[in-house]
């Protein structure tokens, strides 16, 4: 089948970009979307042109590398899938598609469809962990965890950090990503001791990185390839509010002698 692609081409962060039109004649319906771009890139390379840069790695929907906008929707029109697992059979012969990178101040463009999502790593650094040094863990079954809590934590932990929530959000908010980590760790007894500190530091960092705010439109939840729920955002708001209200200064006196 034939597919017409309008792809955002931008050489690097500092140069301006523009849409470039490409026509692909022999698209096989069993190809994945990225395989179709591979074919395009092979053609471009043979013609001596610069291939389209796009992020990808595992191509089985779990690493979170891939992602760009197809006709204004992150990861394209199918729900519950990343773009690497989106297959061409969901498109019609002659379809014209617009491919744009995720757009947000906190996600500067690197090249073409690639953006820099390192802000996510910095948010995790700010508190998205449980402080436990290797070797100091208690016996695993000494911490019973309610099955329900473990399951809900797992639902939140399924986030692959692809950034589609930010891209879809009318406000470029990272709330779904941040709240998924806050909920994952906060729902487990292991995460309880740091729950307040985590909410404070991660939300503060999210603000600092220049993400927008959540207006509860539910857009992120609808396009999340892993079905992470905005219920987590409510939990983040709760945890953060409580953490501010009950905040106490950390002890200044050291404990070592």
């Amino acid at each position: 089948m034939k597919i017409i692609l309008n792809i955002w081409r931008q050489k690097n962060a500092s140069s301006p970009g523009r849409m470039v039109r490409y026509e692909l004649d022999n698209v096989n319906e069993h190809m994945s979307f990225l395989e179709m771009l591979d074919v395009l890139n092979e053609e471009l390379t043979r013609k001596g042109e610069d291939p389209v840069a796009f992020e990808h790695d595992c191509r089985e929907g779990i690493c979170g590398c891939c992602g760009f906008m197809i006709n204004g929707i992150p990861h394209g029109p199918e729900r519950g899938t990343t773009v690497c697992q989106l297959h061409m059979r969901h498109f019609q012969d002659g379809d014209e598609l617009w491919l744009e990178p995720f757009r947000a101040k906190a996600f500067p463009i690197i090249k073409d469809l690639m953006v820099d999502r390192s802000a996510f790593d910095r948010i995790i650094s700010a508190g998205g962990y449980i402080s436990i040094n290797t070797g100091s863990a208690p016996e695993a079954n000494s911490i019973p965890v309610k099955k329900q809590c473990a399951d809900r934590a797992m639902d939140a932990a399924a986030c692959i950090g692809c950034g589609a929530c930010v891209a879809a959000c009318p406000n470029a908010s990272a709330s779904l990503f941040v709240s998924a980590k806050i909920a994952h760790l906060g729902l487990l007894p292991q995460g309880e001791p740091e729950r307040d500190r985590r909410a404070l530091r991660m939300v503060l960092k999210m603000t600092e990185e220049g993400f927008g705010y959540c207006t509860n439109t539910g857009e992120c939840e609808a396009i999340c390839p892993k079905g992470v729920k905005i219920e987590n955002i409510a939990m983040m708001h709760r945890d953060f509010t409580r953490a501010v209200a009950l905040f106490r200064e950390e002890a200044k006196v050291g404990g070592t002698g």
Partner: peptide, 21 residues
């Protein structure tokens, strides 16, 4: 929040569709 929204996405999409909003 409106100002923040504008600064959080300084370059708008050329094409944007909404699924749930």
């Amino acid at each position: 929040l409106w100002r923040l929204k504008l600064s959080a996405r300084p370059t708008p999409y050329l094409k944007k569709s909404y699924v749930a909003t």
